[in-house]
Design a protein around this nucleic acid. Structure first.
Length: 492
RNA sequence: GGCCUUAUCGUCUAACGGUUAGGACGAAGCCUUCUCAAGGCUUAAAUCGGAGUUCGAUUCUCCGUGAGGUCACCA
């Protein structure tokens, strides 16, 4: 809903530090960010590190780097505690304990009297009898005293059918099978997600919980815990899933989902990722597809979030990246191209890289042929860059138009081009159109393919390249003539 | 299996119950061209199935079917 909120909007992104961030996580973060910014609210980055087994060293920094790259700045985060304290759950243990004791006092929490093996036995038995396993069927008659070494379980206050509202899905409900005595605090002293996130959301005044739709099924449990604690419900927003190409599964780390920072390394722009991710699972209802971050903030709304899962399509991502590259200032763009060219060995040592005049001629040629910076590497691998910097190598057969023109005929044409070019003044080489006018009439009389094909191959050494006039313009009078002369020597 | 969610071109999606079901990516074709690239134009391509409500369902209801999620001392 787009109505003016009565209280300040607070959203959060709450990843667990178990590795990198993939596009699904980023999209959730993006929605939470956009909604907070649109409402001049607060965006919190909370680290949910309550599972020390799965924790991966360095993930917190990695997550922060990912968000920073995309410009999703948080108001409170790991290095920036709020009035509510730390944004790292492992530093909030005493708070969880406090609420655990409140629940115990109210009779809504009790120590689990069973061993893990015993619980596993119950589970197996239920499975054999084709019943759903519910721990509450085995709830002890009398609760023992919790000494902190057993898991602390929640006692569901009321077994009932829960109904609630989701900003994306509308009114939802689930039967009482969804309710159970889940674990609040594990035997290692850390709280579970189910417990900790609710305490934190409440204490951090989170008004709007935006997360993936995989949490819909556990929402009734959350609601029963909100009730037991006497907390008001926040707004629930379930974002649709991002699916794998084959649609068979949600995108996850095990299914080849990429680290968002890989897209950075491949030379996608952060603007593109934001724009693209926003549009997968949300749309403004207009035909506009290209958005700046600011525009997204202005136009984003919860009620236009999609219900169905969506596939991430890299072809469209490439197209969109090109569109965003076009919007860059030319200077910035050229600097970036230069940087990527310098990464390629054969080219990096070329003195031409320092030649501003020369480089300004090839920047547009390269830009035309890429949709992300790493495409420059691809161009290099296919030999589509080297000929700008070094004399190309090729077989003399390649000079022959359609492989049919005899060598001596081709040589005659090239000799004529040499004559024409030698007569031309240096100024004429500074203009593609002028170069074209020098040669074009002759080529047309003789047969354009007959003349232009060998000329182009002489200059580039390739069957595919920019037109010969542009090549002459780039290479200049001297080098162009050298290359054509060389071609003539091949054609004996 | 229980519970829950979901369904428009290949993909992302638009359409107060009334449209020739629109746009974008991709594809194909044409133009431009010696070859690429870029650009311009054009075409093909969808309402999962069946009932019902209605003068009229992509849209509302029900039943199927497909797909996904979830049932942890993971988040």
């Amino acid at each position: 809903m787009d109505n003016i909120p009565s209280q300040k909007v607070v959203t959060r992104f709450a990843p667990s530090p178990t590795g990198f961030m993939h596009i699904g996580g980023v999209r959730t973060a993006l929605f939470a960010y956009l909604w907070a910014r649109k409402n001049n609210g607060t965006f919190i980055l909370r680290i949910e590190d309550t599972d020390k087994e799965r924790e991966v060293e360095g993930s917190i920094t990695h997550i922060q780097n990912s968000l920073k790259w995309l410009g999703l700045n948080w108001d409170y985060g790991p290095e920036k505690p709020g009035p509510f304290g730390s944004c790292i759950q492992s530093e909030r243990l005493s708070t969880y304990l406090e609420y655990a004791h409140i629940l115990i006092k109210k009779g809504y929490a009790y120590p689990d009297p069973y061993t893990q093996e015993e619980v596993e036995g119950f589970r197996k038995k239920a499975e054999e009898e084709k019943r759903a396993f519910l721990f509450r069927d085995h709830r002890p008659k009398e609760f023992g005293v919790w000494d902190g070494t057993q898991p602390l379980r929640f006692r569901v206050p009321e077994i009932k059918r829960y109904a609630w509202h989701d900003e994306v899905r509308g009114d939802l409900e689930a039967g009482q099978e969804a309710l159970d005595d889940f674990i609040l605090i594990k035997s290692d002293g850390y709280p579970t997600y189910n417990f900790a996130h609710i305490i934190d959301d409440h204490n951090m005044h989170v008004t709007c919980v935006i997360r993936g739709e995989e949490f819909i099924s556990s929402t009734p449990r959350f609601l029963s815990l909100y009730d037991a604690l006497g907390f008001p419900y926040p707004q629930f927003v379930s974002a649709p899933q991002i699916l794998r190409d084959d649609r068979t599964k949600k995108l996850g780390k095990r299914d080849g989902a990429k680290d968002i920072l890989e897209y950075k390394d491949e030379g996608y722009l952060p603007e593109t990722m934001i724009n693209f991710l926003a549009l997968i699972g949300w749309n403004p209802g207009t035909e506009q597809e290209l958005f700046s971050k600011q525009e997204l903030i202005e136009k984003f709304s919860l009620d236009r979030i999609q219900k169905a899962g969506a596939v991430f399509n890299e072809q469209k991502l490439d197209w969109m990246n090109k569109e965003h590259m076009k919007l860059m200032p030319e200077k910035t763009r050229n600097t970036e191209i230069l940087t990527w060219l310098s990464k390629n060995n054969q080219i990096s040592t070329s003195p031409k890289l320092q030649n501003v005049n020369f480089m300004s001629k090839i920047f547009p040629i390269i830009f035309d042929r890429i949709s992300k910076w790493s495409d420059i590497n691809t161009l290099n691998e296919t030999g589509e860059l080297a000929y700008f910097f070094n004399t190309p190598l090729y077989k003399k057969e390649q000079l022959s138009w359609k492989g049919e023109s005899p060598a001596e005929v081709t040589k005659k044409y090239l000799a004529r081009i040499i004559e024409i070019l030698e007569l031309a003044s240096l100024e004429e080489f500074d203009n593609v159109e002028k170069i074209k006018s020098l040669i074009f009439d002759y080529a047309t009389e003789t047969g354009r393919g007959q003349v232009l094909w060998p000329l182009r191959v002489a200059l580039s050494g390739l069957e595919k390249s920019p037109d010969p006039f542009t090549l002459i313009y780039i290479l200049g009078k001297e080098e162009s003539l050298d290359r054509i002369h060389y071609a003539c020597t091949l054609l004996i």
